[in-house]
């Protein structure tokens, strides 16, 4: 292997956009194993010195859903019209939601967290971001198991389309990654991005119908209508629970938007990643 590397200011810009995609693809392919290793590292780092380990992923949704049930029973909070038992509805929604929220927070912090390493070793930063987004997969799987248990407990039969869940994950993950690529860049230069994000995330969860049904009155109607997260999370849930949905158009548009965000994020990241280490 005797390839020649050149480092020059504004290197990627000079090469043009077409060769850019080739370059990105080659890099991702070459670093598959690295990405896996980085994922393993993050995974073990979280769960190794922990007694209950992966079971934390059970505890978090149970507590938050439990809280909402208590609020509901006390007449403070109204879920809206839900046809299935609320815990199933809520935990399934939470599983898809945290795929986005955990994913976005970990990816946005990935470069900053690895800062001391990035200034010492030159390795694929894309792998680092991708590996950290995969951190949300573990709790997702665990919560899906929890939903399965709840189906049995409440003797509710989901649609067979539940088997499509890997397909439903893809647009959410791509959307998260696209945003994560951009946020991680800016976060490594200006730390406010990361702080703002964790505050904003809770706010966003309450704005998105994750723990309640689609609202029928008030300001949330237009917000929900143009919220891609609503489609990406609630439509898969509806399909899994009922087998069909009436909002195909919104869903497909949101999927398209997710792909677009991913591509833009990836390109932006590729164009500017060389500027980041010196500012971290």
């Amino acid at each position: 292997m005797n390839k020649t590397i050149t480092y020059e200011p504004d290197n990627s810009i000079k090469k043009g956009y077409i060769s850019l995609f080739k370059e990105i693809f080659r890099e991702l392919k070459y670093n598959k194993w690295l990405t896996l290793q980085l994922f393993k590292r993050d995974f073990f780092a979280i769960y190794k010195q922990s007694l209950v380990g992966v079971f934390w992923a059970f505890i978090v949704p149970i507590i938050s859903v439990g809280t909402f049930i208590i609020l509901n029973r006390s007449g403070i909070f109204n879920f809206g019209e839900i046809e299935v038992p609320y815990p199933i509805f809520a935990i399934l929604g939470m599983a898809f939601w945290q795929l986005f929220s955990t994913g976005l927070i970990t990816t946005s912090n990935s470069l900053v967290k690895a800062g001391s390493m990035l200034v010492k070793i030159n390795f694929s930063k894309k792998s680092l971001v991708i590996a950290s987004s995969a951190q949300s997969l573990v709790p997702f799987i665990v919560q899906l198991v929890l939903v399965g248990v709840l189906f049995v407990v409440y003797s509710v039969n989901p649609s067979v389309k539940i088997l499509l869940f890997p397909l439903f994950m893809i647009p959410i993950i791509l959307f998260t990654l696209g945003l994560g690529f951009i946020f991680s860049l800016f976060n490594s230069v200006v730390r406010d991005i990361g702080n703002a994000l964790s505050v904003f995330m809770t706010f966003l969860m309450f704005l998105t119908p994750v723990l309640y049904a689609k609202p029928k009155i008030g300001i949330l109607i237009p917000i929900t209508k143009f919220n891609p997260l609503y489609y990406l999370i609630s439509i898969p849930r509806e399909i899994i629970l009922k087998g069909s949905t009436l909002e195909w158009k919104g869903y497909l548009l949101s999927v398209g938007a997710a792909f677009f965000v991913f591509i833009v994020g990836l390109v932006v990241f590729h164009l500017t990643e060389t500027r980041v280490t010196e500012r971290i």
């Binding site: 292997m1 005797n2 390839k3 020649t4 590397i5 050149t6 480092y7 020059e8 200011p9 290197n11 001391s116 390493m117 990035l118 200034v119 010492k120 070793i121 030159n122 390795f123 060389t274 500027r275 280490t277 010196e278």
Partner: peptide
Amino acid sequence: GIFWPDKGKITIKGKVGALIAVGAG
């Protein structure tokens, strides 16, 4: 390749290995 030059050009042939802060990863 950790920092990129602001002026000029660096050309390197082959695989680069670094013994900079070993064990950093």
